[in-house]
Design a protein around this nucleic acid. Structure first.
Length: 271
DNA sequence: AATCGCGCCTGACGGC
DNA sequence: TGCCGTCAGGCGCGAT
């Protein structure tokens, strides 16, 4: 599920229900995620108070008393809060039980997720240190993208999905942003002009911000409800719409694999 | 140095 | 009904 907007929506939904709580116990049912969860993790977590929940790219950072619990939702991961002792479901691999009895559960059917404890500055950790600028922070601009893309032959779509270039853009929002910026996803990154990079930067910001806004409107519904966090209804202009008419010109939208990922676009509106 | 393709997993879906 | 192939919103790794 998660690209930046879904992770951010999860963070916003989670913050009011976990900040300030102390971990009373931890259950690890299935330790074998992308990296196997160390057997010592529960002991490390018990007694930790959650001071804040932050996000970097698609990672969630639970800032605790003595360190940071880093979580990546992978492809299918989600979190949900349990307030009444609802039984765990299939693929509820890990849970944190808090001092007030509430439970945070991590469900991940494909187990591409990552969960690890970091004692030092998490931003210096190898998983986070290489990440590019946050697209909504203002650090991202057209000149930066143009400079990084210089001489690169990689398709622009794969380029903006590179987390060391921009943090948080995944397969859906890459297609959506390129459509909005009217750029063909197959274009080698090094061939784009500065004005196109500026348009693409604007488009990335717009599609992500709109998705976060859509997520925010559903957030009140998550409070005190036992549902997966971070899911919200979202309609896309091109993603998943091969064969349907382009919302601009009416031509059938196309789909093509670029770097092993399905990419949706309009061959008339995007150049 | 940059790029490609694979593997990690399970589940849903369509064709036969 | 079952079996099989394909596809799925991610990412790091090794080979080229």
């Amino acid at each position: 599920m998660p690209e930046l907007p879904e992770v951010e929506t999860t963070r916003r939904g989670l913050s009011p229900v976990v900040i300030g709580k102390v971990v009373r116990s931890v259950i690890v049912r299935v330790p074998k995620l992308r990296q196997t969860i160390p057997a010592a993790l529960p002991d490390v977590l018990v007694g930790q108070r959650i001071l804040d929940v932050k996000r970097r790219a698609k990672y969630l950072l639970f800032c605790c008393t003595d360190g940071t619990l880093l979580l990546h939702l992978g492809m299918t991961g989600y979190l949900w809060m349990v307030f009444n002792s609802a039984p765990p479901g299939r693929h509820d691999h890990i849970e944190l039980i808090f001092d007030d009895g509430s439970i945070l559960r991590f469900n991940d059917s494909r187990r591409f997720g990552t969960l690890l404890w970091i004692e030092d500055d998490p931003l210096e950790h190898s998983l986070l240190a290489h990440l590019g600028p946050e697209p909504l922070d203002g650090a991202l601009n057209g000149a930066y993208l143009a400079r990084l893309a210089q001489g690169r032959k990689l398709c622009v779509k794969a380029f903006i999905m590179d987390q060391s270039v921009v943090a948080g853009v995944g397969n859906i929002y890459a297609s959506e942003a390129l459509f909005r910026a009217r750029i063909l996803p197959q274009t080698p990154a090094g061939q784009l002009h500065l004005t196109q990079w500026q348009a693409l930067r604007d488009a990335i910001k717009t599609v992500l911000a709109e998705a976060i806004a859509a997520g925010a409107t559903t957030l009140h519904a998550f409070r005190k409800t036992e549902k997966p966090l971070g899911y919200f209804p979202m309609t896309f202009k091109v993603y998943g719409r091969a064969g349907e008419p382009c919302p601009n010109c009416g031509r059938p939208l196309l789909v093509e694999k670029i770097g092993q990922r399905s990419s949706y676009y309009c061959c008339r509106c995007q150049r």
